[in-house]
Amino acid sequence: MNGITGHSLFRRLEHAAALLLALLWMAPLLYAVWAAIHPPEYAIHFDLLAPISLENFQVAWSRAPFARYFLNTFILVTTILAAQFVLCTLAAYAFARFEFPGSGIAFALVLLQLMIMPEVLIVENYKTMSQLGLVDTISGIGLPYMASAFGIFLLRQTFKTVPKDLEDAARLEGCGPLQVLWKVYVPLARPTYVAYGLVSISYHWNNFLWPLVITNSVTTRPLTVGLAIFGAPESGVDWSIISAATLLAVAPLLVAFLLFQRQFVQSFMRAGIK
């Protein structure tokens, strides 16, 4: 019996430690919320009776074109996702079901992008974009990411698990390759699309380096780049307002995450174990 009480005491300590670490992990976000909803003089000292106000959000919103940044990020993320779905589906189908000559080498060349991400090639890709006249455009930000090795790989794995009989049945009914893809493979791969979509959206909502390099005006800058300019020490904006702006920028993704937490975690898991 002694062993069991000692055991459960240890368990309780463990639970306490887990909870403490969780709170520590949340602390930066909680602090940002504190600073954002209180007047600036409370940003550096904590008083439970401090008055709550949303003025910081109004000030942040009016000092930088955040509405435009939101629109840019939204267009960017949806364009990339739509293009990725189309391009990766087609390529994954080719790798999963068509054994054409050179497919092995082609697949290895595709996987190369898992190592050499577009972030690493900013110097050359900037040159290419200026030759194409796409510097400072939203397509310029998105293009290097549209053919995603990760997406192709993930969908190929999923398509391979689809029973061949289903394809044969569809073919007997007179479906061409694209119809088979659309009617058999795509519906069966829905969970993979959701998983990949969530990973892609969070990646591109948060992406910074390449958008920073390739944009230079308000009409193209995504939120991350806008926020970096807004929060620069030279801008002389105080903490409360930066916190408010930071929360504004992360709000849509954060709210989506808190609402669909289970799906997010499972999507990242699904994407990770393939």
Binding site: H15, L29, N206, T224, L227, A249, L254, Q261
Partner: peptide
Amino acid sequence: MPLQGFVRMCYFTPTVLPMIAVANIWLFF
């Protein structure tokens, strides 16, 4: 363990936040 879902959410939250945004917060720390 108690509060399992909450704890998991706390651990995972930094992953969905942009580095640029969290760096702003950490700058203050």
